[in-house]
Design a protein around this nucleic acid. Structure first.
Lengths: 332, 332
DNA sequence: TGTTTTAATTAGAACGTTTTCATAATTCTT
DNA sequence: AAGAATTATGAAAACGTTCTAATTAAAACA
């Protein structure tokens, strides 16, 4: 591939001059600029960003680590991140950790070697310590890692509150919450906190059943189905309202109820969380759910990171909590 | 960030020697190796892949351009590509063209500037010419571009055949096919070819209605719904079987039928195409559809590209057609 | 023993840019 | 018209690697 030298030769100027034209900095004669531009076009020159990155020690690459880019929620998140990144001249290096600690560690190492300008961490399998010692700008989704690692997330506490209140206001007398794994201290745990609190405030008996991790790569639905079968099914009918930690789980529960002839919402009300593209496509039932504005989350993750990168000494490492919204569907 | 010089200094050897240790090539004394490894660990050294890429003119980056990484089909495809790429030490640069020619052109330019080792093209808005003149290894999904650009796709013709035959064998007497845009010569058009052919072979009257492009970013469902409302609705009842070019469209049609009290499959049979993660999650109805094995497609795209990259003079630029499979659901 | 082989190490060029510094040419001042 | 300021250009160092070629040290040979 041709390089800046070839351009210089072709245009009959020095390499420096060509560089000047490309970067539009310093004095350049009008004629010279034209000659150079013509030369570049003539030989189909394309500046080598690798060489540039080396020299400027900035790559304009962002690493994004997610558990599974196929999952509707992350697929949508990634897309929004990419859209924003692209607008700001950054490129995305995509990494699927599959929630395996080892893969995550490897990816972090790989991103470091590739000198990405920063990392957006949406996968959280490692101890906070591990992230802290990464010497790169990081922004985290849904987890508080340390003071100097900003995070972005939806207002999980409020989400849990709104969902729970909605169930109670719809007449539920005994509530169940199907949460994600609560062992790691992640922001979504606030949903459970709120659930408990609201139940207590309203003297509503409740229970929380925790779903373990397990990435069934072929069917997001399947793992939830299994969980419900094994851990929820028996006691399900003792409740009249369930707050699920995500929409696909909620859908699985709905299907389960239907199979058993349990009427939703008459006998059992269900609220989900996310309102991701799957949920939006799903027409029967239209789930009642708490919407996380993924577009805003993506944008905030990206802009926060870029700010950290470009604000060398920046005081801009703000955390962001975006508002949620209750979407009323047919399951409550 | 520390560099190879720092390691050399710390270990009391030359830069060359450190490079030797890192790359495991040439003679290295046992003791020396140990010293160097210790030094690297001590100062947390991470080889600069950018410098490496510059020197070796290989970046181990692959560009992937898709219309929309949020779409379940592409989300799944990308994930499979990434999985395979990672195993082979390649990284993925993700690009969303949104089916805009200008964005696609920009992305190609960007990938060239970033000296990716190759491009996987899943977005096809430009003229074949444009791709041909890209001086990088390219592999294309679902489109024949030129002799030296290999392509990968499912056996679209057979897919169309199987779907159509299935409808006819299920008793349909008059068939409709809702296809994607047919103006560009893409492999999925073979589905329509097969549809026509099979109908003619069986003396079945048929019609094809073409859906235009339009990326409604918020709802994949919505655009199909609109299309059905406007272009299909009126004459729908004159058919008793519909072959849809993708699952989401098929689902939209199902919902439309339901709303109008048209019984599926009794009055109207529906077959989709893809069997993507949305379809797999969907429980009501279980769609009858033609499965494209996305995992194999992803793998083939990736391995074909890597072969081109690494087989310098390679004769390996084979096209790949992967087998489809009819998934029997409740809509036929 | 001296010579050849093999093993271990290094200096320095190269990869394609940007940037600093120096210099040349032009235009302004007065 | 002479110096100062402005405009335009280029040579060469630097970014962090790898690689070629050269050099030295140790082992094997005869």
């Amino acid at each position: 591939m041709v390089n800046i030298k070839d351009v210089a030769k072709k245009a009959g100027v020095s390499v420096t001059t060509v560089s000047r034209v490309i970067n539009n900095r310093g004095y350049i004669g009008k004629e010279t600029r034209k000659k150079v531009e013509k030369a570049m076009a003539d030989i189909n020159y394309s500046p080598n960003q690798i060489a540039r990155a080396l020299q400027k020690s900035q790559s304009y690459l962002l690493g994004v680590i997610v558990p599974d880019s196929e999952h509707p929620f992350f697929a949508e998140l990634i897309k929004n991140i990419e859209l924003y990144a692209y607008k700001n001249n950054y490129k995305l290096l995509l990494c699927n950790s599959l929630d395996e600690a080892e893969k995550e560690t490897n990816y972090i190492g790989m991103l470091r070697e590739n000198r990405v300008d920063g990392i957006i961490m949406c996968s959280q399998t490692l101890d906070v310590e591990e992230y802290r010692k990464v010497d790169l700008p990081i922004v985290s989704f849904d987890r508080i890692m340390s003071n100097d690692i900003p995070y972005v997330g939806s207002d999980n506490f409020n989400g849990g509150r709104v969902a729970t209140k909605h169930l109670i206001e719809s007449g539920c007398k005994k509530l169940l919450h199907l949460s994600g794994p609560l062992d790691l201290d992640m922001l979504p745990n606030r949903r459970s906190d709120a659930f408990k609190l609201v139940c207590m405030e309203h003297d509503i008996p409740y229970k929380i059943i925790e779903e373990e991790y397990s990435r069934d790569t072929f069917s997001f639905f399947g793992q939830h189905e299994e969980f419900i079968e094994e851990k929820v099914s028996k006691e399900l009918l003792t409740y009249d309202g369930v707050f699920c930690s995500n929409d696909i789980l909620a859908y699985a529960l709905y299907i389960h109820a239907q199979k058993r002839g349990i009427k939703v919402p008459e006998q059992l009300k269900i609220v989900g969380y996310d309102f991701n593209s799957f949920t939006r496509m799903l027409q029967k039932p239209k789930l009642t759910t708490v919407k996380q504005p993924v577009d805003r989350i993506g944008r905030e993750l990206c802009s926060t990171l870029i700010n950290m990168i470009e604000d060398k000494d920046g005081e801009k490492r703000n955390n962001t909590i975006v508002d949620i919204e209750l979407i009323r569907g047919e399951t409550t």
